[in-house]
């Protein structure tokens, strides 16, 4: 299998954990994986990306423009910012809840609505509201695992949900495991419903 998956968001949203779980799951399935993360000053509230490259002939650590099969965006404007990486027929999973830019850097009116409108009208796209999806688990912080469920549920991830679940069990702290697994299951349900429609 050959698959390029990009994960993007704002520093602090938990994108790194999501990319680590995808990479580990792909390796569990016997695939060759390379990935790359944003590290350093940009992590302080700036845009962050993870590039996960599955397949034997990935030389570059970064996905090429127009190369991503799947874009998992933790934030609407970050999805748009990184859309140039998406393949023409690529799939987008986007969190519709915006992270407003820091008060004085402009963009006070930004609410993510235009971005979601743009994405859903132009791409194959599943928009997920992290607040609603994660409400039963008490914190939007479970979104990083829930969105993996959604990706697996749609079939766009190209990895089995069981493999991913096993990696979640190995990765997240024991005391948060139950809620993470519930969030993952909720994501799968949402993804499966989307692809059924």
């Amino acid at each position: 299998m050959k698959k390029d998956i990009m994960i993007c968001g704002v520093g602090g949203q938990g994108t790194v954990l999501a990319s680590k779980i995808i990479a580990a799951s792909a390796m569990d399935e016997g695939l060759t994986v390379h990935s790359a993360e944003t590290i350093g000053m940009a992590q302080r509230g700036g845009p962050v990306t993870s590039h996960v490259r599955i397949g034997d002939d990935a030389f570059s650590p970064l996905i090429s423009a127009g190369g991503a099969d799947l874009l998992i965006a933790f934030e609407p404007s970050e999805a748009v910012r990184n859309l140039r990486y998406l393949k023409k027929d690529g799939f987008v999973i986007v969190n519709s809840v915006p992270v407003k830019p820091t008060s004085l850097s402009g963009g006070a009116d930004y609410d993510g609505k235009a971005e979601i409108e743009f994405l859903t009208s132009r791409c194959r796209c599943l928009a997920v509201n992290s607040d609603e999806l994660c409400a039963p688990f008490g914190s939007s912080k479970f979104f990083n695992v829930a969105v993996l469920g959604a990706a697996a549920g749609t079939g766009e991830l190209g990895l089995s949900a069981d493999t991913v679940r096993n990696e979640i069990i190995k990765t997240v702290p024991q005391r948060f495991l139950e809620k993470n697994l519930a969030a993952f299951a909720a994501g799968i349900k949402l993804g499966a419903e989307h692809s059924a429609n």
Partner: peptide, 21 residues
């Protein structure tokens, strides 16, 4: 060849300069 997703009229993403936490 660089046939990526079609981006015309995409909304401009807001600037996110790094800030103190």
């Amino acid at each position: 060849d660089n046939s990526g997703a079609e981006l015309s009229s995409a909304p401009e993403p807001p600037a996110r300069p790094p800030v103190l936490c």
